[in-house]
Design a protein around this nucleic acid. Structure first.
Length: 658
RNA sequence: GCCGCGAUAGCUCAGCGGUAGAGCAGUGCUUUCGUAAAGCACAGGUCGUCGGUUCAAGCCCGACUCGCGGCUCCA
């Protein structure tokens, strides 16, 4: 083996050193110009405009930002600052509260100064003790903790920048313990924008102190940065909360925090999803049930939710119950508050946060035969979960919602077939709605769990095989399964690339156990069924939120709350317009007329912003010829056509995408 | 729940100690018009709630409620 060589020298020898080369990629690893490699290594160049190069730029910018922050806010401690999708962040422990918007502007200015100083990044490999001594001396307690958690035997490197090589005195360099890679010089950076400040827990644990996180982004050029910022602005225009208001789909009111009021058009969307799913259920053999909203707490004691899920449940009380619970005992003593609370918790009804326990009640309501299995029990019941204040978000995370919920009771042998059937249905539905980017995850056994290792091996491999036979690539989330079983999660991103879990499939042997559910098998003996929890939309509310953002409020005709707007050119064509409108309504199309005195241009503009699939312009020429002039939202001007032609076209587009 | 920020007319926002503003939407009148905004007029607000500072509070301070960006947690 030959002697290792500095990457910069290697590139120089090969004549491949260029201003925009920030690193090389060898065996899938990004290695910066400061590192040493085997000179015979095969590699490709990483330029600052490449995806990998951007990561390097962003990581280096995070360092420069931390440097700027420590210059401006002495006493602030650094923690970590990685590159992330679309940018970077750095977490600080800042005495005396967080950063303000003005602080961000100052920090950005200082970053630019550091960039302009055009100083080199330098990499130094040190021993664990040297690193510890250095950061302890600096008082960087979080860094000391990080160094201590680096596995024994792993190389520890420092990255420094800030001093020009001419000065020869690197004492004032800003230093961070870091794996790298980093750009050669600060002048490789520059197109930087600090986007927001936020709180974040040290090491992601809410028991730890909260740090101040600054988010930013960086690009190879100012043009690329501007383009990115423009895209974000455009994405914000698709925010479902904004469109929900503009298109009059739903509202929120402080009288019911985080619980949506669906307006007529939003209610139409909601009902259309239910109707669509019912069609799917008819094809795939699901039976829909309707179950109560509030339950004796015994039910949730049996299911195990009481105790584990208390903080998320809404409870009910009645005057009768309060009287009963506050009644003096037979010796005339009043109950203590603690006792009253205990009795209230034990006795007050609970609003259901999920449907599964009710379905177990139905399954157990009489003797079941193996001939009834698999039994796919669907429920569009309304659920309530008390979510902590900071987590609610438009329709995506609410306190009352409806899942397209179903539980499949089946034998162990039937599990594989049911998973396969579900996967097919799932992808059929998402295709119908035009979703292509779906992140599939398999959440496996958590530390706190019930059931034997054999069970978990079996259940995890059943789900995994289901995903594999469906030909899906998926990510494994170790330890993130439910306490009772593993789950498959389907995630979709909103307009701002926040990921939301929609569909799920979960393997649950626990509830049948707790509810002592049995069926009589072919052998005449009792057997315990397996229960699969599954949802395709996840929750209608959340699905609607991502779907609104996915289509930007441009709903296809089959699900558009208003399919067409009829616009008259002037009063002269009102009679014919009303006739056409009545004929369309008679065919059950969702249409509305605009017979106001506005000019056609204004009517068109209104209808455009309302995003209806069609506009039907009615003027005197149409009245004479008996035509309608059609303008499609998606295809533009279609010109005059006979009524029947338009009607047939809209009828075709109104069909459910089966 | 935690960190930070915010709340003024139905909507979008300006005003930041000294008599509540604009555009759009709404209503009325005029206009009768062929593919992205006709004109005029009128009407709309205890400036989120409660308390404090001040001669004087949308404006300053505090608490609460609701919301926004994150974190943690979740469909």
């Amino acid at each position: 083996m030959s002697d290792r060589i500095n990457v910069r020298s290697l590139l120089e020898q090969k004549g491949q050193l260029a201003d925009d080369v920030v690193a090389i990629k060898a065996n899938g690893t990004i290695i910066d110009l400061h590192s040493f490699v085997d000179p015979t290594t095969t590699f490709e160049l990483v330029r600052k405009t490449d995806k990998d190069g951007l990561q390097v730029i962003r990581h280096s910018t995070a360092h420069v930002m931390a440097d700027a922050v420590q210059r401006l806010f002495p006493g602030t401690k650094v923690t970590i600052g990685p590159a992330i999708e679309d940018g970077f962040y750095y977490d600080f422990d800042k005495p005396g509260g967080g950063f303000t918007e003005e602080d961000l502007a100052k920090i950005e200015k200082t970053i630019r100064e550091i960039v302009k100083s055009n100083t080199p990044f330098r990499r130094e490999v040190v021993t664990r003790d040297q690193a510890l001594a250095l950061f302890e001396k600096m008082g960087e307690t979080f860094k000391v903790e990080i160094i201590k958690s680096i596995p024994e035997g792993e190389e520890i490197s420092l990255y420094k920048h800030g001093t020009h090589e001419k000065s020869q005195n690197y004492d004032k360099d800003w230093v961070d313990v870091c794996e790298g890679p980093h750009v050669p010089r600060t002048s490789n950076l520059g197109a930087v924008k600090l986007t927001s400040v936020a709180g974040a827990y040290w090491r992601g644990d809410e028991r730890n102190p909260m740090l101040q996180r600054i988010y930013g982004t960086a690009f190879a050029t100012q043009e690329a940065l501007d383009e990115h910022l423009k895209l974000i602005e455009e994405a914000k225009a698709r925010d479902h909360r904004k469109l929900g208001k503009e298109l009059e789909l739903f509202i929120f009111d402080p009288v019911a925090p985080a619980m949506p009021f669906f307006l007529p058009r939003g209610a139409f969307l909601y009902n259309a999803l239910v109707q669509y799913m019912r069609e799917m259920y008819a094809i795939d053999g699901y039976d829909e049930v309707i179950t109560p909203q509030a339950f004796d707490p015994k039910l949730f004691r049996t299911s195990g939710h009481l105790g584990n899920y208390n903080e998320n449940m809404y409870r009910l009380w009645t005057e009768d119950l309060l009287e009963e619970l506050t009644a003096k005992d037979k010796d005339g003593n009043e109950k203590s508050t603690a006792e009253f609370i205990k009795r209230l918790q034990d006795n007050s009804f609970a609003i259901k946060p999920m449907n599964c326990p009710s379905h177990c009640v139905i399954f157990g309501s009489r003797r079941r035969s193996y001939r009834e299995l698999p039994w796919r029990m669907a429920d569009f019941g309304r659920l309530h979960r008390y979510e902590r204040g900071g987590v609610v978000h438009g329709l995506s995370r609410v306190r009352t919602f409806c899942q397209d919920d179903a539980h499949i009771f089946c034998t162990r042998e039937q599990v594989a077939g049911e998973i396969e059937k579900f996967m097919k249905l799932f992808y059929r539905v998402y295709k119908a709605f035009g979703f292509e980017k779906i992140d599939v995850k398999l959440a496996t056994r958590p530390e706190k769990r019930v059931g034997s290792d054999e069970f978990w091996d079996m259940a995890e491999s059943a789900l995994q095989k289901g995903l594999e036979s469906a030909g899906l690539t998926f990510e494994i989330l170790p330890g993130e399964g439910a306490f009772y079983g593993p789950k498959i999660e389907f995630h979709v991103q909103d307009a701002l690339k926040r990921s939301w879990q929609l569909g799920t499939m979960q393997y649950d042997p626990n509830l049948p156990e707790r509810f002592e559910l049995d069926y009589v098998g072919e052998d005449g003996k009792e057997h315990r069924p397996v229960m699969l929890h599954r949802a395709i939309f996840g929750s209608l509310e959340r699905f609607i939120s991502v779907y609104i953002e996915h289509c930007g409020g441009n709903f296809p005709a089959w699900i558009a709350p208003m399919q067409a707007k009829l616009l008259t050119v002037s009063d002269k064509s009102e009679a014919y317009g009303r006739d056409v409108l009545a004929r369309l309504k008679a065919r059950s199309f969702r249409v509305e007329g605009n017979f106001s005195g506005d000019k056609l241009g204004a009517k068109i503009r209104d209808a455009r912003t309302a995003r209806h699939p069609y506009m039907i312009v009615i003027g005197e020429k149409d009245a004479e010829a008996g035509t309608v002039s059609v303008r499609s939202r998606d295809k533009g001007e279609l010109g005059a056509m006979p009524f029947d032609q338009f009607s047939a076209m809209l009828a075709e587009e109104s069909k459910l995408p089966l």
